[in-house]
Amino acid sequence: MGRPVLDCGKREKKIDVRFTQEEFDVIVEMEKSSGMRKAALIRKKLLSEGEKILLDSKVVMNNLDAVGLELSRAGNSINQLARYANILNRDGLLSAVVVDRLLLELRKYNEIKMHLERLMRKLIRMLSS
């Protein structure tokens, strides 16, 4: 009989990794629950699912800075619109068009902010798992 034929090339390279007892216990538990051998389990986790968590922290931080800057700019624009609306209201010149425009901008800003919050939660969950 002998060893089964591999789906793809022969595995010739080896990586030695050390784990703490707690980490090893987690791997053994995953091995038991999945029915996979440790090597196959680690290979699957690293090669299939590992790409999801590999991030360049500099790129992430630069993008977060850019997003923060855009949110700040949008907030400033909304403040300017609100200030203008207050001046118009004080002078009795506030029209429904200005109020509608301000509400539209506030809704857009809120949607973007909520979307960003969801993405941040997703990123944090991904990084912490």
Rank of each mutant, 00 (worst) to 15 (best):
R37G: 14
E105G: 00
N86T: 02
D65C: 03
V98H: 06
K58P: 00
N62D: 15
V97C: 01
M36G: 01
G92T: 09
A85T: 08
T20G: 06
S33A: 11
E22N: 09
I78R: 02
R18N: 12
S33K: 15
R37Q: 09
D91A: 09
G92K: 06
F19A: 04
E51L: 13
L93N: 11
L41T: 06
R83K: 12
Q21C: 03
L93V: 04
A96F: 08
L93T: 04
R37K: 11
K32A: 13
E105V: 08
S33R: 15
E29F: 06
M30H: 04
L103V: 05
D16F: 04
N79I: 02
G35I: 11
E70W: 03
L55S: 03
N62A: 13
L94P: 03
L47H: 07
R101E: 12
E31W: 01
M36N: 09
A74M: 10
R73Y: 06
E29R: 11
V17G: 00
L54W: 06
V67C: 03
V97M: 07
L64K: 04
N62L: 12
R37T: 15
F19W: 06
A40S: 13
L93Q: 15
L93W: 02
L104P: 00
D56N: 15
Q21S: 13
L54N: 06
L103N: 15
K45Y: 14
K38T: 13
V17H: 00
I78H: 00
N63A: 12
L55C: 05
K58F: 03
V59N: 08
S72A: 13
I87N: 05
M61L: 14
L46A: 15
V26F: 11
K58S: 14
S34V: 13
I15F: 07
E31A: 09
A85H: 02
E49R: 11
N79R: 04
V67R: 04
E51D: 05
M36T: 02
G35H: 04
I27D: 01
A39K: 14
D16N: 14
Q80R: 09
Q21F: 02
K38Y: 01
Y84T: 11
T20K: 06
I42Q: 08
K45D: 04
A85K: 00
R18A: 07
K32T: 12
K32C: 02
N76S: 07
V67D: 02
L41F: 11
L41Q: 08
I78P: 00
D100H: 05
V67H: 02
D25R: 10
G68Y: 00
L93K: 13
G92E: 07
